[in-house]
Design a protein around this nucleic acid. Structure first.
Lengths: 178, 178
DNA sequence: CCAGTTAGTTTCATGATGGAACTAATAATA
DNA sequence: TATTATTAGTTCCATCATGAAACTAACTGG
Protein backbone atom coordinates (compact mmCIF):
# COMPACT_ATOMS: atom_id res chain seq x y z
CA UNK A 1 0.00 0.00 0.00
CA UNK A 2 2.55 2.64 0.96
CA UNK A 3 4.31 1.85 -2.27
CA UNK A 4 4.79 5.49 -2.75
CA UNK A 5 4.82 7.78 0.22
CA UNK A 6 3.89 11.42 -0.09
CA UNK A 7 4.82 12.46 3.41
CA UNK A 8 7.52 14.84 2.30
CA UNK A 9 5.68 16.20 -0.72
CA UNK A 10 5.29 19.96 -0.79
CA UNK A 11 1.53 19.59 -0.90
CA UNK A 12 -1.03 19.49 1.87
CA UNK A 13 -3.23 17.26 -0.21
CA UNK A 14 -0.53 14.73 -0.98
CA UNK A 15 0.62 14.48 2.61
CA UNK A 16 -2.88 14.00 3.85
CA UNK A 17 -3.47 11.35 1.24
CA UNK A 18 -0.74 9.25 2.77
CA UNK A 19 -3.25 8.40 5.46
CA UNK A 20 -6.61 9.38 4.00
CA UNK A 21 -6.02 8.31 0.41
CA UNK A 22 -7.18 4.85 1.19
CA UNK A 23 -10.46 3.00 1.33
CA UNK A 24 -10.29 1.77 4.87
CA UNK A 25 -8.85 4.60 6.92
CA UNK A 26 -11.64 7.06 6.12
CA UNK A 27 -14.24 4.40 6.79
CA UNK A 28 -12.69 3.60 10.15
CA UNK A 29 -12.83 7.28 11.01
CA UNK A 30 -16.43 7.35 9.85
CA UNK A 31 -17.28 4.49 12.18
CA UNK A 32 -15.76 6.40 15.08
CA UNK A 33 -17.99 9.29 14.19
CA UNK A 34 -20.98 6.96 14.20
CA UNK A 35 -20.06 5.74 17.66
CA UNK A 36 -18.15 2.54 16.90
CA UNK A 37 -14.90 2.09 18.78
CA UNK A 38 -13.92 -1.56 19.17
CA UNK A 39 -11.96 -3.95 16.99
CA UNK A 40 -14.66 -6.51 16.40
CA UNK A 41 -17.25 -3.87 15.71
CA UNK A 42 -15.09 -2.20 13.11
CA UNK A 43 -14.49 -5.60 11.62
CA UNK A 44 -18.16 -6.45 11.56
CA UNK A 45 -19.51 -3.20 10.11
CA UNK A 46 -16.78 -2.68 7.59
CA UNK A 47 -16.33 -6.32 6.65
CA UNK A 48 -12.61 -5.71 6.57
CA UNK A 49 -9.99 -8.42 6.99
CA UNK A 50 -8.77 -8.63 10.57
CA UNK A 51 -5.15 -8.38 9.52
CA UNK A 52 -5.84 -5.29 7.45
CA UNK A 53 -7.84 -3.76 10.27
CA UNK A 54 -4.97 -4.34 12.67
CA UNK A 55 -2.57 -2.58 10.34
CA UNK A 56 -4.90 0.32 9.71
CA UNK A 57 -5.65 0.93 13.36
CA UNK A 58 -1.94 0.89 14.08
CA UNK A 59 -1.32 3.37 11.30
CA UNK A 60 -4.09 5.68 12.42
CA UNK A 61 -2.78 5.59 15.98
CA UNK A 62 0.78 6.19 14.78
CA UNK A 63 -0.35 9.11 12.68
CA UNK A 64 -2.20 10.58 15.61
CA UNK A 65 -5.75 10.35 14.28
CA UNK A 66 -6.83 7.73 16.78
CA UNK A 67 -5.90 7.01 20.35
CA UNK A 68 -6.21 3.77 22.23
CA UNK A 69 -8.19 3.93 25.42
CA UNK A 70 -8.10 0.97 27.79
CA UNK A 71 -11.55 -0.02 28.95
CA UNK A 72 -10.66 -3.26 30.71
CA UNK A 73 -7.56 -4.76 32.34
CA UNK A 74 -7.87 -8.54 32.19
CA UNK A 75 -7.23 -9.12 29.40
CA UNK A 76 -6.13 -5.64 28.36
CA UNK A 77 -8.65 -4.27 25.90
CA UNK A 78 -8.77 -0.99 24.08
CA UNK A 79 -11.19 1.27 22.37
CA UNK A 80 -10.16 3.50 19.52
CA UNK A 81 -11.21 7.12 19.76
CA UNK A 82 -10.65 10.11 17.54
CA UNK A 83 -8.03 12.62 18.58
CA UNK A 84 -8.22 16.31 17.72
CA UNK A 85 -6.44 15.56 14.48
CA UNK A 86 -8.80 12.68 13.86
CA UNK A 87 -11.82 14.91 14.36
CA UNK A 88 -10.39 17.36 11.87
CA UNK A 89 -9.99 14.51 9.42
CA UNK A 90 -13.59 13.60 10.12
CA UNK A 91 -14.44 17.13 9.02
CA UNK A 92 -12.92 16.39 5.65
CA UNK A 93 -15.12 13.31 5.51
CA UNK A 94 -18.14 15.54 6.03
CA UNK A 95 -17.14 17.46 2.92
CA UNK A 96 -16.78 14.16 1.14
CA UNK A 97 -20.18 13.15 2.42
CA UNK A 98 -21.76 16.31 1.05
CA UNK A 99 -20.16 15.60 -2.30
CA UNK A 100 -21.32 12.00 -2.24
CA UNK A 101 -24.87 12.99 -1.38
CA UNK A 102 -25.01 15.41 -4.24
CA UNK A 103 -23.68 12.99 -6.84
CA UNK A 104 -24.69 9.56 -5.66
CA UNK A 105 -28.06 10.04 -3.96
CA UNK A 106 -31.27 11.84 -4.71
CA UNK A 107 -31.83 15.02 -2.82
CA UNK A 108 -33.43 14.37 0.54
CA UNK A 109 -32.73 10.67 0.28
CA UNK A 110 -29.35 10.62 1.93
CA UNK A 111 -28.25 7.61 4.00
CA UNK A 112 -26.74 9.51 6.90
CA UNK A 113 -27.68 12.67 8.71
CA UNK A 114 -25.59 14.77 10.99
CA UNK A 115 -26.81 16.63 14.04
CA UNK A 116 -25.47 19.10 16.54
CA UNK A 117 -24.83 17.61 19.93
CA UNK A 118 -26.15 20.53 21.94
CA UNK A 119 -28.99 21.85 19.84
CA UNK A 120 -29.97 18.59 18.18
CA UNK A 121 -30.37 20.59 14.96
CA UNK A 122 -29.50 19.12 11.62
CA UNK A 123 -26.08 20.11 10.36
CA UNK A 124 -25.41 20.59 6.65
CA UNK A 125 -21.71 20.75 5.95
CA UNK A 126 -20.71 23.19 3.24
CA UNK A 127 -17.45 24.59 2.03
CA UNK A 128 -17.07 28.37 2.13
CA UNK A 129 -14.39 30.97 1.90
CA UNK A 130 -13.59 31.86 5.50
CA UNK A 131 -13.33 35.53 4.58
CA UNK A 132 -16.31 36.23 2.42
CA UNK A 133 -18.28 33.35 3.93
CA UNK A 134 -19.52 32.59 0.45
CA UNK A 135 -19.79 29.11 -0.95
CA UNK A 136 -16.71 27.93 -2.76
CA UNK A 137 -16.96 27.01 -6.40
CA UNK A 138 -13.76 25.42 -7.59
CA UNK A 139 -14.47 26.69 -11.11
CA UNK A 140 -13.90 30.17 -9.82
CA UNK A 141 -10.45 29.46 -8.44
CA UNK A 142 -6.89 29.24 -9.51
CA UNK A 143 -3.86 28.03 -7.61
CA UNK A 144 -0.44 29.45 -7.03
CA UNK A 145 2.66 28.44 -5.11
CA UNK A 146 2.85 29.36 -1.44
CA UNK A 147 5.94 29.97 0.73
CA UNK A 148 6.59 26.26 1.20
CA UNK A 149 6.55 25.46 -2.50
CA UNK A 150 9.94 24.62 -4.10
CA UNK A 151 11.53 27.65 -5.70
CA UNK A 152 12.28 26.24 -9.16
CA UNK A 153 10.85 28.85 -11.47
CA UNK A 154 10.34 26.76 -14.56
CA UNK A 155 8.50 24.18 -12.53
CA UNK A 156 6.23 26.80 -11.05
CA UNK A 157 5.49 28.41 -14.35
CA UNK A 158 4.61 25.36 -16.32
CA UNK A 159 2.31 24.25 -13.60
CA UNK A 160 0.61 27.32 -12.21
CA UNK A 161 -0.05 28.74 -15.62
CA UNK A 162 -2.89 31.03 -14.70
CA UNK A 163 -1.17 32.34 -11.61
CA UNK A 164 1.86 33.49 -13.55
CA UNK A 165 -0.17 34.79 -16.44
CA UNK A 166 -1.82 37.14 -13.99
CA UNK A 167 1.41 38.43 -12.58
CA UNK A 168 2.78 39.73 -15.83
CA UNK A 169 6.23 38.34 -15.31
CA UNK A 170 6.25 36.54 -12.03
CA UNK A 171 7.27 39.61 -10.06
CA UNK A 172 4.40 39.77 -7.67
CA UNK A 173 0.73 38.94 -7.66
CA UNK A 174 -1.15 41.55 -9.64
CA UNK A 175 -4.57 41.90 -8.09
CA UNK A 176 -3.79 39.41 -5.39
CA UNK A 177 -4.50 40.40 -1.83
CA UNK A 178 -2.09 39.09 0.76
CA UNK B 1 -7.29 -1.80 -6.53
CA UNK B 2 -11.05 -2.10 -6.77
CA UNK B 3 -10.71 -5.24 -4.75
CA UNK B 4 -13.71 -4.18 -2.83
CA UNK B 5 -16.16 -1.82 -4.42
CA UNK B 6 -18.33 0.44 -2.32
CA UNK B 7 -20.49 1.76 -5.11
CA UNK B 8 -23.66 0.30 -3.72
CA UNK B 9 -22.92 1.02 -0.09
CA UNK B 10 -25.57 3.06 1.69
CA UNK B 11 -23.01 5.73 2.48
CA UNK B 12 -22.03 8.85 0.62
CA UNK B 13 -18.53 8.59 1.95
CA UNK B 14 -18.01 5.00 0.90
CA UNK B 15 -19.35 5.56 -2.59
CA UNK B 16 -17.16 8.58 -3.09
CA UNK B 17 -14.17 6.66 -1.85
CA UNK B 18 -14.56 4.27 -4.74
CA UNK B 19 -13.02 6.98 -6.86
CA UNK B 20 -11.42 9.38 -4.40
CA UNK B 21 -10.13 6.84 -1.87
CA UNK B 22 -6.94 6.47 -3.81
CA UNK B 23 -3.59 8.17 -4.01
CA UNK B 24 -3.58 9.04 -7.67
CA UNK B 25 -7.09 10.15 -8.52
CA UNK B 26 -7.12 13.07 -6.10
CA UNK B 27 -3.69 14.13 -7.26
CA UNK B 28 -4.78 14.06 -10.88
CA UNK B 29 -7.71 16.26 -9.97
CA UNK B 30 -5.35 18.54 -8.10
CA UNK B 31 -3.19 18.90 -11.19
CA UNK B 32 -6.23 19.89 -13.22
CA UNK B 33 -6.91 22.56 -10.66
CA UNK B 34 -3.33 23.76 -11.01
CA UNK B 35 -3.74 24.01 -14.75
CA UNK B 36 -2.25 20.73 -15.94
CA UNK B 37 -4.29 18.86 -18.54
CA UNK B 38 -2.14 16.59 -20.71
CA UNK B 39 -0.99 13.04 -20.33
CA UNK B 40 2.73 13.66 -20.34
CA UNK B 41 2.40 16.56 -17.95
CA UNK B 42 0.43 14.52 -15.46
CA UNK B 43 3.03 11.83 -15.82
CA UNK B 44 5.89 14.21 -15.28
CA UNK B 45 4.53 16.12 -12.28
CA UNK B 46 3.08 13.14 -10.49
CA UNK B 47 5.83 10.71 -11.37
CA UNK B 48 3.17 8.09 -11.92
CA UNK B 49 3.60 5.03 -14.12
CA UNK B 50 2.18 5.60 -17.59
CA UNK B 51 0.08 2.47 -17.43
CA UNK B 52 -1.40 3.48 -14.11
CA UNK B 53 -2.06 6.98 -15.38
CA UNK B 54 -3.87 5.55 -18.39
CA UNK B 55 -6.13 3.51 -16.14
CA UNK B 56 -6.81 6.35 -13.76
CA UNK B 57 -7.68 8.83 -16.48
CA UNK B 58 -10.03 6.29 -17.96
CA UNK B 59 -11.66 5.72 -14.59
CA UNK B 60 -12.03 9.42 -13.92
CA UNK B 61 -13.57 9.95 -17.34
CA UNK B 62 -15.88 6.96 -16.85
CA UNK B 63 -16.96 8.26 -13.49
CA UNK B 64 -17.66 11.64 -14.95
CA UNK B 65 -15.06 13.68 -13.08
CA UNK B 66 -12.98 14.39 -16.17
CA UNK B 67 -13.81 14.92 -19.80
CA UNK B 68 -11.56 14.46 -22.79
CA UNK B 69 -11.23 17.45 -25.05
CA UNK B 70 -9.56 17.01 -28.42
CA UNK B 71 -7.04 19.72 -29.12
CA UNK B 72 -5.47 18.28 -32.26
CA UNK B 73 -6.50 15.86 -35.01
CA UNK B 74 -3.36 14.30 -36.48
CA UNK B 75 -2.64 12.34 -34.45
CA UNK B 76 -5.72 12.65 -32.22
CA UNK B 77 -4.69 14.19 -28.93
CA UNK B 78 -6.74 15.02 -25.88
CA UNK B 79 -6.70 17.21 -22.86
CA UNK B 80 -8.37 16.20 -19.65
CA UNK B 81 -10.58 18.78 -18.02
CA UNK B 82 -12.69 18.77 -14.88
CA UNK B 83 -16.43 18.38 -15.29
CA UNK B 84 -18.95 19.86 -12.86
CA UNK B 85 -18.69 16.72 -10.80
CA UNK B 86 -14.93 16.92 -10.98
CA UNK B 87 -14.95 20.50 -9.76
CA UNK B 88 -17.11 19.45 -6.84
CA UNK B 89 -14.59 16.74 -6.06
CA UNK B 90 -11.91 19.39 -6.24
CA UNK B 91 -13.85 21.21 -3.54
CA UNK B 92 -13.42 18.20 -1.29
CA UNK B 93 -9.72 18.40 -2.00
CA UNK B 94 -9.73 21.99 -0.79
CA UNK B 95 -11.09 20.76 2.52
CA UNK B 96 -8.36 18.16 2.55
CA UNK B 97 -5.85 20.86 1.78
CA UNK B 98 -7.01 22.96 4.71
CA UNK B 99 -6.66 19.93 6.95
CA UNK B 100 -3.21 19.17 5.59
CA UNK B 101 -2.05 22.72 6.09
CA UNK B 102 -3.16 22.70 9.67
CA UNK B 103 -1.50 19.43 10.56
CA UNK B 104 1.47 19.12 8.24
CA UNK B 105 2.72 22.67 7.76
CA UNK B 106 3.43 25.65 9.93
CA UNK B 107 0.89 28.40 9.82
CA UNK B 108 1.59 30.80 6.96
CA UNK B 109 4.06 28.41 5.40
CA UNK B 110 1.69 26.51 3.18
CA UNK B 111 2.88 25.17 -0.19
CA UNK B 112 -0.15 26.19 -2.23
CA UNK B 113 -2.44 29.15 -2.18
CA UNK B 114 -5.82 29.53 -3.75
CA UNK B 115 -7.22 32.68 -5.30
CA UNK B 116 -10.49 33.89 -6.70
CA UNK B 117 -10.51 34.19 -10.46
CA UNK B 118 -12.42 37.45 -10.61
CA UNK B 119 -11.24 39.33 -7.55
CA UNK B 120 -7.78 37.83 -7.31
CA UNK B 121 -8.31 37.67 -3.55
CA UNK B 122 -6.95 34.84 -1.49
CA UNK B 123 -9.48 32.13 -0.73
CA UNK B 124 -9.39 30.21 2.55
CA UNK B 125 -11.58 27.12 2.38
CA UNK B 126 -13.43 26.31 5.58
CA UNK B 127 -16.17 23.92 6.51
CA UNK B 128 -19.32 25.44 7.98
CA UNK B 129 -22.86 24.49 8.70
CA UNK B 130 -24.86 25.89 5.78
CA UNK B 131 -27.61 26.99 8.13
CA UNK B 132 -25.89 28.67 11.01
CA UNK B 133 -22.85 29.49 8.88
CA UNK B 134 -20.72 28.57 11.85
CA UNK B 135 -17.55 26.53 11.63
CA UNK B 136 -18.09 22.82 11.96
CA UNK B 137 -16.39 20.99 14.77
CA UNK B 138 -16.79 17.26 14.36
CA UNK B 139 -16.53 16.85 18.13
CA UNK B 140 -19.86 18.61 18.40
CA UNK B 141 -21.70 16.24 16.10
CA UNK B 142 -23.42 12.93 16.11
CA UNK B 143 -24.72 10.86 13.25
CA UNK B 144 -28.00 9.16 12.58
CA UNK B 145 -29.51 7.14 9.76
CA UNK B 146 -31.17 9.04 6.93
CA UNK B 147 -33.96 7.92 4.59
CA UNK B 148 -31.62 5.88 2.40
CA UNK B 149 -30.14 3.91 5.28
CA UNK B 150 -31.15 0.22 5.54
CA UNK B 151 -34.05 -0.29 7.88
CA UNK B 152 -32.64 -3.04 10.09
CA UNK B 153 -33.25 -1.73 13.58
CA UNK B 154 -30.63 -3.67 15.47
CA UNK B 155 -28.01 -2.57 13.01
CA UNK B 156 -29.01 1.04 13.37
CA UNK B 157 -29.05 0.91 17.11
CA UNK B 158 -25.72 -0.70 17.71
CA UNK B 159 -24.09 1.75 15.39
CA UNK B 160 -25.78 5.08 15.91
CA UNK B 161 -25.69 4.78 19.65
CA UNK B 162 -25.97 8.43 20.49
CA UNK B 163 -28.70 9.08 17.98
CA UNK B 164 -30.94 6.43 19.48
CA UNK B 165 -30.07 7.34 23.03
CA UNK B 166 -31.43 10.79 22.30
CA UNK B 167 -34.68 9.54 20.90
CA UNK B 168 -35.74 7.69 23.99
CA UNK B 169 -36.84 4.63 22.11
CA UNK B 170 -36.24 5.20 18.49
CA UNK B 171 -39.63 6.76 17.91
CA UNK B 172 -38.55 10.10 16.60
CA UNK B 173 -35.71 12.54 17.09
CA UNK B 174 -36.11 14.29 20.40
CA UNK B 175 -34.76 17.76 19.96
CA UNK B 176 -33.92 17.17 16.35
CA UNK B 177 -35.12 19.70 13.83
CA UNK B 178 -36.17 18.35 10.46
C1' DC C 1 15.74 10.68 -43.21
C1' DC C 2 16.25 11.06 -38.47
C1' DA C 3 15.28 12.87 -33.99
C1' DG C 4 11.59 14.57 -31.09
C1' DT C 5 6.80 14.80 -29.16
C1' DT C 6 2.76 12.79 -27.30
C1' DA C 7 0.00 9.14 -25.77
C1' DG C 8 -0.30 5.26 -24.91
C1' DT C 9 0.41 -0.58 -24.33
C1' DT C 10 3.02 -4.61 -22.83
C1' DT C 11 5.71 -7.26 -19.75
C1' DC C 12 7.26 -8.54 -15.43
C1' DA C 13 8.83 -8.62 -10.40
C1' DT C 14 7.13 -7.18 -6.12
C1' DG C 15 4.08 -5.99 -2.58
C1' DA C 16 -0.60 -5.14 -0.66
C1' DT C 17 -4.93 -7.33 -0.08
C1' DG C 18 -8.62 -10.49 1.52
C1' DG C 19 -9.83 -14.92 3.43
C1' DA C 20 -9.44 -18.45 6.58
C1' DA C 21 -7.57 -20.57 10.31
C1' DC C 22 -5.12 -20.15 14.52
C1' DT C 23 -3.64 -18.08 19.25
C1' DA C 24 -4.45 -16.13 23.71
C1' DA C 25 -6.54 -14.53 27.86
C1' DT C 26 -10.47 -14.40 30.36
C1' DA C 27 -15.64 -14.72 31.60
C1' DA C 28 -19.87 -17.15 31.60
C1' DT C 29 -22.29 -21.38 31.50
C1' DA C 30 -23.44 -26.40 32.42
C1' DT D 1 -14.28 -29.07 35.85
C1' DA D 2 -15.13 -28.87 31.06
C1' DT D 3 -17.15 -26.14 27.49
C1' DT D 4 -18.37 -22.34 25.01
C1' DA D 5 -18.30 -17.40 24.15
C1' DT D 6 -15.99 -12.89 23.81
C1' DT D 7 -12.48 -9.91 22.25
C1' DA D 8 -8.40 -8.78 19.84
C1' DG D 9 -5.30 -10.06 17.51
C1' DT D 10 -1.49 -12.97 14.34
C1' DT D 11 -0.04 -16.16 10.67
C1' DC D 12 -0.29 -18.11 6.18
C1' DC D 13 -1.29 -18.04 1.49
C1' DA D 14 -3.22 -17.17 -3.25
C1' DT D 15 -4.33 -13.37 -6.03
C1' DC D 16 -4.51 -8.85 -7.70
C1' DA D 17 -2.76 -4.10 -8.26
C1' DT D 18 1.32 -1.52 -8.60
C1' DG D 19 5.57 0.61 -10.52
C1' DA D 20 9.45 0.40 -13.70
C1' DA D 21 11.10 -0.02 -18.04
C1' DA D 22 10.83 -1.02 -22.66
C1' DC D 23 8.12 -0.94 -26.72
C1' DT D 24 4.50 0.81 -30.26
C1' DA D 25 2.35 4.25 -32.96
C1' DA D 26 1.27 8.44 -35.31
C1' DC D 27 2.72 12.37 -36.51
C1' DT D 28 6.01 17.00 -36.70
C1' DG D 29 9.90 19.70 -37.81
C1' DG D 30 14.48 20.31 -39.64
Amino acid sequence: MERKTFDTAPCSIARSLDVLGDWWNPLIIRECLYGVHRFDEFQKWLDIGRNILTRRLKQLVDEGLLEKRPYQDNPPRFEYHLTDKGYDAAGVLLALMAYGEKWHFENGNEPIRIFDRTSGARVMPALVDARSMRAIDARQLYAGPGPAFPADKSVRRSRFVEYFARQGDGKRPAKTTE
